[in-house]
Amino acid sequence: MSELHRAVKVWDLPVRLFHWLLVALFGFMFFSGKAKGNWMEWHMYSGYMILALVLFRVLWGFAGSTHARFSSFLAGPGACIAFMRKLLSRSPAHVAGHNPLGGWMVLVMLLLLLAQAGTGLFSNDDISIEGPLYKFVSKEVSDQLTSFHYYNFYVLLALAAAHIAAVAFHVLVKKENLVGAMFTGVKMLDSQTEVPAVRFVSSWRALGLFVLALVAVILIVKRPF
């Protein structure tokens, strides 16, 4: 086993901020969705924020730094199978960005988060609160979307659990510093790992895209027109 002594910067600041903000908001959504009562008001605000964050992340997947782009981490079936063959070995995976399975997990989570936030906008709790777009659908459709919102959360929770389990496996068994890398942006790799030429895009562009996503969400939610 070769030593992991090459410090390589892989995650840009926007990706890291997105990740940890999402973790915090997801936890709050779990809590507030269960707590009900006046917490529902904050559940909605937090949902708008998640929607803006996920929209931003989708944009960043096209216009962000190398390892943030979908084109860099959505691997073909061949790469996925090759990766899985070596998965259970105790040696590190030697991947600079997302590994092939992790990359698809990112996409699935983003899509389901989008569906979760999107259906939330049309949901009602049959007690006292409705999503901002509730008025555009029938009660029946809203009830169906609310039902989806309810069950899809558990799918997301299961995905989050699988994600954490996978990271734990990589950290504990394969000795990769994945958690640390999501804080610092730096991964420790060995000398053989192929490190592609990485282009880091300015965080100012990320801020611009996030503001764009946030404005879009506010326009959807507040409907000033």
Binding site: K36, N38, D125, S147
Partner: peptide
């Protein structure tokens, strides 16, 4: 009123959670 409104909403939801299909 807001505080008690919240407590009342929770009481409604408690029953909806356990006894009402989603």
């Amino acid at each position: 009123i807001k505080a008690q409104f919240g407590a009342t909403g929770k009481a409604c939801a408690a029953c909806h959670d356990d006894f009402r299909s989603k």
